[in-house]
């Protein structure tokens, strides 16, 4: 899912959103016909390998691309602050004290257009469509897992 590096983060976000929209649209028809139960997955699967930029991702995770999944974890702001957010990181560890989450230990979650959420404390279950693959901005990998969020419990 890598694509050309946009010049600004804003452009990158727009292009990611556009790409997701197109892919979501492509999935809409079968979704309309067949309701999809989320696949339960976990960070044990998503983070179960040593990631290096440019590597071929394991089949275990690529098979989750474009799938409706449910995953448990902790919500984290992408940057320190307060108040509701439109995007957040889902991580496996409540405290960054044990180190920086690696790229494959993070699901970058985007709320539906116009929706926001508070950062909830404790473990949450997030359901949505997962996109798997390196995403780049300014030649740097900025995400491997991106999710369009349907619900947070």
């Amino acid at each position: 899912m890598s694509h050309a590096a946009p010049t600004t983060a804003t452009n990158a976000r727009a292009s990611i959103a556009q790409m997701r929209s197109l892919r979501s649209f492509a999935l809409l028809l079968p979704l309309c016909v067949l309701p999809q139960d989320p696949v339960r997955t976990s960070f044990a699967v998503l983070a179960g390998f040593d990631w290096t930029a440019g590597m071929k991702l394991p089949d275990e995770v690529t098979k989750l691309d474009n799938q409706k999944v449910q995953i448990g974890g902790f919500m984290l702001r992408e940057a320190p602050g307060s108040g509701p957010v439109t995007q957040f990181l889902l991580i496996n560890d409540a405290c960054g004290c044990t180190g920086t989450p690696k790229m494959n230990e993070i699901v970058f979650c985007a709320m539906p257009d116009g929706a926001t959420t508070d950062i909830k404390n404790g473990v949450v279950q997030v359901t949505g469509t997962l996109y798997v693959g390196e995403q780049k901005e300014e030649d740097e990998v900025v995400a491997i897992y991106v999710m369009d969020v349907d619900s947070i419990q």
């Binding site: 983060a9 940057a79 990181l89 790229m103 901005e137 300014e138 740097e140 990998v141 900025v142 995400a143």
Partner: peptide
Amino acid sequence: TSPRYGLRLA
């Protein structure tokens, strides 16, 4: 300060 986690990391 980058607002993007991945860019901060890189």
